[in-house]
């Protein structure tokens, strides 16, 4: 029973975290530096900075890009705790797990840095291993931070529209947008159904029972998504849709946007040049 509660709490917790993390747009509505930038050029700028971080082989340089990213976050009046929490605690932790084996001499032979034994297996951390794992971690952290920065400072649908810079077809962008909306809707349906079941069952139902409920829920969800799909299509037809959706695209960029894109390109250039120079 206790176990069940734990699962229950983590699932509902994960759902609302997911909802907040992906669909909240209060940060995007604040007035700040990045919020004022044109979405298309901002997207390009982030893209260029990520490339710079990926190409650079110097951890100091990548740290510099990361610092730039944090400064941008500050200039965009983003709640910095919220920003760091989101980037530091979640995604890079996974990458640390991936990068961890590379530390050891089994995977990265080289100069021994630190040696110890785990269950009688001699292991040593090598300098080469340490530096490649460090760079890998720094790259992931920087790219993830840049992406998070882009997504929290831009409203979702604007971001989707900005995908058009990369020549994504209109139908694709629109479908993607609808997917996002229906993911949101289905999270709500799950939460509401869950609440409804709980209110009817008084929150007391055994593991066996609740597994049944979950299975039934998934089936019902498929059914509902199918019905919903049909309804949405009918609603589109009813309003004159006839194959290719027509939407308007309005973006306004100023010389400032171009200036910042230029800065990003300069950083990328610097990263490439430094690579060349170091080799």
């Amino acid at each position: 029973m206790k176990n069940n509660r734990f699962v229950e709490r983590s699932i509902t917790g994960a759902l609302s975290f997911f909802k907040d993390a992906i669909f909240a747009d209060e940060e995007a509505l604040k007035k700040g530096f990045l919020q004022a930038r044109d979405a298309r050029l901002k997207m390009l700028m982030v893209f260029v900075l990520i490339l710079a971080a990926l190409f650079s082989k110097s951890i100091v340089f990548i740290a510099g890009i990361y610092a730039f990213c944090v400064i941008l976050a500050l200039a965009s009046s983003i709640n910095i705790i919220f920003f760091l929490k989101r980037t530091w605690f979640f995604i890079p932790l996974f990458s640390l797990c991936i990068a961890l084996p590379a530390l050891f001499d089994i995977f990265s032979p080289g100069e021994k840095f630190l040696s110890f034994k785990v269950f009688f297996v001699p292991l040593s951390i090598t300098k080469q291993g340490l530096s490649s794992a460090g760079i890998f971690f720094a790259r992931v952290l920087t790219s993830v931070s840049l992406c998070v920065l882009l997504s929290v400072t831009t409203r979702h649908y604007v971001l989707l529209k900005a995908l058009r810079v990369f020549r994504a077809p209109q139908v694709f962008v629109m479908t993607l947008g609808m997917c996002c909306r229906y993911v949101y809707l289905f999270i709500e349906i799950i939460q509401n159904t869950y609440m409804a079941i709980k209110s009817r069952a008084g929150g007391v139902f055994g593991i066996k029972n609740s597994q049944g409920v979950v299975a039934w829920n998934i089936a019902a969800l498929w059914q509902r998504s199918y019905v919903m799909h049909n309804r949405v299509y009918e609603a589109m037809l009813s309003r004159g849709y006839s194959g290719e959706p027509k939407v308007i695209e309005e973006f306004d960029f100023t010389y400032k946007d171009w200036f910042w894109l230029g800065t990003a390109i300069l950083i990328l250039g610097l990263s490439l040049w430094q690579n060349h120079y170091l080799n």
Binding site: E234, A235, M236, G240, V247
Partner: peptide, 28 residues
């Protein structure tokens, strides 16, 4: 002929209210 559906979740599928209102006339 304009149809207001029973379920507004099906009827509204654009990313913002404004775009949803503009959808019909744009298609036409």
């Amino acid at each position: 002929v304009g149809f207001v559906f029973q379920n507004p979740d099906a009827q509204l599928f654009c990313p913002s209210v404004k775009e949803d209102i503009m959808f019909g006339p744009l298609q036409l």
